[in-house]
Design a protein around this nucleic acid. Structure first.
Length: 216
DNA sequence: TGCCAGGCCGGGT
DNA sequence: ACCCGGCATGGC
């Protein structure tokens, strides 16, 4: 929590998804789920363009997306990069919601956390970080999101081990933090912001990194 | 200019 | 059980 407070004090609330209006609507939740796939290894500014394209094209619904060809979908999401791969992954997700959940994303997201996570992970193209992002930000349920920055930063601070896998790191945070969705939401967002201060060599890049004083 | 971004999958050892 | 290449655009 001390590290969270240091990041939060420097950056302020990051205001990621569910803190914005409209995110609780089915369309808002869908945007979050699509964004979670589109942002895989991709900067958020590129994802925003792709999401905006879908909205402008009036395709931001399961049924509309389900009716789209691979080529048309790929073209709309082109700015997000890896557009062929991502069009396939989005289609896998959309098809699952359509065929198993009757096109009702709320019904899917209403599952209890562990069942929801299994269901999401069984979609080809949805890995652990993507699934946890959907659970935390779209479903509003407590599932801590781990990403490359999380490992890089906390390994550097020797709070987790070099070899720790995703599930181990996730469990570390979930066991050390109060089980609070808004906290976990902003915590991950703060980590992403802070991660920009860390290069891959073992030393912070910027002099005013909020976690600087925690380094040995 | 080159490097990197909120990963994930599939094939090879 | 690893390890690695592929995927692609946009910003600094």
């Amino acid at each position: 929590m001390a590290m969270y407070q240091a990041m939060r004090a420097k950056f302020g609330p990051r205001g990621w998804w569910p803190s914005t209006a409209g995110c609780r609507s089915p369309q808002g939740r869908l945007e979050i789920c699509l964004g979670a796939i589109l942002t895989q290894n991709t900067s958020w500014s590129n994802v925003e363009k792709a999401v905006a394209n879908l909205i402008t094209a009036r395709r931001m619904s399961i049924s509309k997306l389900h009716a789209l060809s691979h080529e048309a979908l790929a073209e709309l999401i082109r700015p997000a990069g890896y557009f062929n791969v991502k069009a396939r992954r989005l289609a896998n997700f959309i098809t699952r919601v359509q065929e198993r959940w009757g096109g009702d994303i709320e019904a899917l997201l209403a599952l209890p956390i562990s069942a929801l996570r299994e269901e999401l992970l069984s979609v080809n193209g949805v890995g652990r970080e993507t699934a946890d992002s959907m659970i935390l930000y779209a479903a509003g349920k407590p599932s801590f999101v781990v990403d490359a920055y999380t490992a890089r930063i906390f390994v550097r601070h020797k709070l987790i081990g070099e070899e720790d896998d995703y599930e181990t790191i996730k469990a570390f945070f979930e066991s050390h933090l109060p089980r609070d969705v808004p906290l976990w939401n902003d915590y991950h967002a703060q980590i992403v912001e802070t991660g920009k201060c860390y290069c891959k060599k073992p030393r912070p890049r910027c002099d005013d990194c909020p976690l600087r004083r925690f380094l040995k």
